[in-house]
Design a protein around this nucleic acid. Sequence first.
DNA 1: TTGAAAGCGCTAACAC
DNA 2: GTGTTAGCGCTTTCAA
Lengths: 343, 343
Amino acid sequence: MGVTLKELASTLGLSPTTVSRALNGYPEVNARTRQRVQDAARAANYHPNIRAKSLATGQSRAIGHVIPISTSHEIVNPIFADFIAGAGESYSRAGYDMVLSVVPDAEEEAAYRNLVARGSVDGIMVHGPRLQDSRIPLLRDLGVPFMVHGRSSGVSAPYSWLDINNRRSFRRATEFLLDLGHTRIALVNGLETMDFAMRRRLGYLDALQEAGITPDPALMHTAEMTEPFGHDAGRALLALADPPSAFLASSMIVAYGLRRALTDAGLRLGRDVSVIVHDDDLSYMPNGLDVPQFTATCSSVREAGRKAAEMLLALVRDPDQPPLTLLMETQLVLGDSTGRNRT
Amino acid sequence: MGVTLKELASTLGLSPTTVSRALNGYPEVNARTRQRVQDAARAANYHPNIRAKSLATGQSRAIGHVIPISTSHEIVNPIFADFIAGAGESYSRAGYDMVLSVVPDAEEEAAYRNLVARGSVDGIMVHGPRLQDSRIPLLRDLGVPFMVHGRSSGVSAPYSWLDINNRRSFRRATEFLLDLGHTRIALVNGLETMDFAMRRRLGYLDALQEAGITPDPALMHTAEMTEPFGHDAGRALLALADPPSAFLASSMIVAYGLRRALTDAGLRLGRDVSVIVHDDDLSYMPNGLDVPQFTATCSSVREAGRKAAEMLLALVRDPDQPPLTLLMETQLVLGDSTGRNRT
DNA sequence: TTGAAAGCGCTAACAC
DNA sequence: GTGTTAGCGCTTTCAA
């Protein structure tokens, strides 16, 4: 623990009040006094004790992120990590701390209640919304500013969110494949209890419907997004009597597995079959498929994290404003092994 | 903000002190009084304000994790996420918060200083140690309990760490390949500015040396661990006049790329070439390579996170004890597409 | 422009 | 066993 305000004040022969005011930019301080105080603070390596400050102001200057982990699988969604990295940047720029609560799904509600009741945070970011997510009404009841990364279909009352336009992204991707002449298009999707996956399927169905194609349930696979899942789905799809000629993959890692199934079957991407990958982060894309021709829709999760954090901070500063929302569009990328073009 | 101690006390007709004592398990409280207090607390949904508590006790009951991000690439090492998930479990079990500081490499030192000076945390976890990592002496100077996930070669004074036995893991894997009769063994390693990657190379070299084989620099590739890197390295290695017959991959994602290069070249894993993968997390392994025969060394990062957090908490509770260290051994897994056996 | 005093919600001597 | 008092480090009236 370093030097305190009081010590700093007595060193300077000033009152704690004046020092506080000088340091916090209150206008009524003599310019020379302020300068003197600032210099002394720097020299003494003074940092205000954040908890004392919080206690006095009633604000914690911290934002809570609760990330649910299932006990069934050990892997944390890498998307969380990138999003949190982006959010963290915004927080530290604004002088806020980020407190992370990692909890088993079962204890999630208690985690939110705790965070709020103990006054640990001024606002909360909600991750991985499911359909009709119960956390949204809960947080509203608790009266704490919050922001959802994604959306929850079935929640009617307005709330603040930032989402990627998953539906549009998958609609466009499907349309693209339809334009290439494909009629049997497979969807290798994430877990459809998650809101984002459900929206992706809707986008896919939108495009099919518009083209007058009846969706075939056999062409739609859904599971947690892993390489093995991509592979298994690919195999199963190729084993169909009437296999698809085009594939839509819900993440890069799934696409890796899918590609394996396709190439193992002797198919060449971009010639025998077409593949479009969607990934939430552009960074996963470069040369990712490394074939003469592939297509991808993507966005930057880190950027999303930054933006979402800024919106949440705005909410924290003025809790009475109406909900903030932002729908981010994805980019459609046409890539080859040497570089890529965007459309 | 909920009900306060004072309010709760006056409701009960007791002094705040008694209520505090009852709730915090002090022995000198009448059993019936305690019961009454506990019931009332539950009924009123009382949660102590953590900042007031911290201020009064001088402890923050929070642990800081600083995760460095480079501005050059957007992807956060997924290992961080799994480790943090494990650590988070231990913290919440112990009633501690986790504060995450995501900072660009350049500002890392300032981040540590801030965390300590502002009294935000009681202890710090250091991620991704590099060779001769300067953070270790810094934290020692700051006098804050800390724990390193990994080790830093070249730091002589003792410090607390938890690490996976990377050297032994890669040594065993190499020996295994040597036993199979391979003499040209490629190493597709992570960035060797990172301590773990350097140790992995040492293990590889250990085994070669013991077998009397002169290491060939052309067989050692090092870069950030991505699928494209695995692919590029694989291609380059196969293009050699005297290509390797066995490969050691430093992570599952690298192995995916490597496998692609190998199969594209018409080689069959487990027959024409042997591949061993090391990954820090077992979870990434199941069916991961999905070939008739492959080998993997792995550990559980989540479990490492749990353990490391517990060790750090022990350090926080008794800062005067000698440094705590733990070297976790990896498991050698022989896998096939249907299941796996461990040795 | 500066200072004195009270208080944020809790804990911890020290009395009773 | 329980209460009184002071204080953690800061902000914020209010007065000067």
